[in-house]
Design a protein around this nucleic acid. Structure first.
Lengths: 254, 254
DNA sequence: AAGTGGTCTAGACCACCGT
DNA sequence: CGGTGGTCTAGACCACTTG
């Protein structure tokens, strides 16, 4: 047994008001560090609250508050009686968290992804700026179509940081059953935490019109997304063209 | 002093698993009832945690958890050392909570609202369905333009439940300095709690093109919104046409 | 029955705000 | 200084899941 003078392993710098952060937030950061390090993989159970309280030498209530915040941020999932689990993009509950497209009439619909290409390329200045890398650095460029009920509805151009995903191939995309983020998380250990989307209305150009089977000039919803992993590190930029004839982008304003 | 057998005023039906709701959630509902009843108006301070704990005969921690949830839902705002306050649309922090339009380059920009018309009308079947009223019931129909830096960027058609807002006039809209929701909350006591937006890309028709100064057929972002007040009651439906030449709709995916 | 998360309490103390 | 929200603790008990 350790004989500590202080109750907690963590120095309590309560008075230094500039960098003060409460105990539960320090615990949270430690747990996030463990997630980043892969101590527990997606879908795994993390140690119980009591066990974490012992490990960090704090009360269970403090651990609880840390986990509360992480559950609210979709990093962890609580299941009463079972434990607390690392969130995963394989979970069906997360399928529509990053794809807000819904059919105008009727229920949540399944879609099929059709990857068209997947090549390593040098980052343009624009892509590099968004992904916080240098122009000319490697990026993985993907083109794909999403079909709802057989009809093409979305055309995506996706750019992934090359350093992390260089081994990705078209075959691998085609043979994978689940979502792209699910693949990136399970095959590359990189989990998408949050994203920003910027939406505009544009007219279809010739290339996109062919992919979506619409007329050139047809109004399309342009959705540009930057996705971030732990530590607010941008790892994906994508540009999606949504045909909103029979679908719409649904957003909840809390 | 009351001499209660039970610790709390509220019956603890912990075993009836069908309708079980924890104490803090029951407290939360009571506080929401007080908000609906107008016991404390927008911007007012509600009683302290200790006072509420006394009133409801529960511990401060339980009150705290109830208020935590309400703060997370933007119903209340906590301010350390000062108290807990009823959220208000007059608060600048809420200006961009319901208008997600941002200029492409540069910082959050002020906009001016130009109301064009405000008339009481019979609800169409479409509007009535969304607002959960009967076709033919009264609605207040508003048209307006939002200008950023003098340029028209948004054209809105707004429909409000007539029962609540029948006294609204064009003059009142024109003379009011702040946001529409701010007016509805202060003048009619109806607070918008949350909203759903459905986004599509459409081609500008002649009427809208004139208002926005664009060509007919120009791609526009169509934003349809249903806004709800307490108890998930829909009270507003609006259809906004956004010109996204120099602006975009920003959405955070948590 | 044992182990997990979920609720509730009582009390101590800290950080912040106003007077 | 007193009052407010914010943090932390220790312990009790409840609800859910699994064996």
């Amino acid at each position: 047994m350790r004989t500590a003078k202080h109750k907690s392993n963590i120095p309590m710098t309560r008075s230094s008001s500039l960098t003060f952060s409460p105990l539960y937030r320090q615990i949270k950061e430690l747990v996030i560090k463990s997630l980043e390090a892969g101590e527990w993989g997606p879908g795994d159970a993390i140690p119980s609250e009591a066990e974490l309280a012992l490990r960090f030498n704090v009360s269970q209530g403090t651990v609880r508050k840390a986990i509360d915040e992480m559950a609210a941020e979709n990093l962890l999932v609580r299941r009463q009686g079972k434990g607390t689990f690392v969130a995963t993009h394989s979970d069906p509950r997360n399928f529509f968290r990053f794809l807000r497209l819904m059919p105008d009439n009727g229920r949540t619909q399944q879609y099929e992804s059709e990857p068209l290409s997947c090549v390593v390329r040098e980052a343009s200045a624009e892509v590099a700026g968004v992904l916080n890398i240098k122009p000319g650095d490697a990026v993985v460029a993907i083109e794909r179509i999403l079909r709802f009920d057989g009809q093409p509805v979305v055309f995506d151009e996706i750019y992934l940081v090359g350093e992390l995903f260089a081994d990705l191939t078209l075959d691998r995309l085609k043979s994978y059953e689940r979502s792209l983020y699910s693949l990136l998380e399970s095959a590359f250990g990189v989990r998408m935490i949050r994203a920003e989307e910027r939406l505009r209305a544009v007219a279809a150009n010739a290339a996109v019109a062919v992919h979506l089977g619409t007329a050139v000039g047809h109004p399309l919803l342009l959705v540009e997304r930057v996705a971030y992993t732990y530590g607010n590190k941008p790892v994906e930029w994508r540009r999606g063209y949504y045909c909103t004839e029979q679908h719409h982008y649904l957003n909840e304003l809390g």
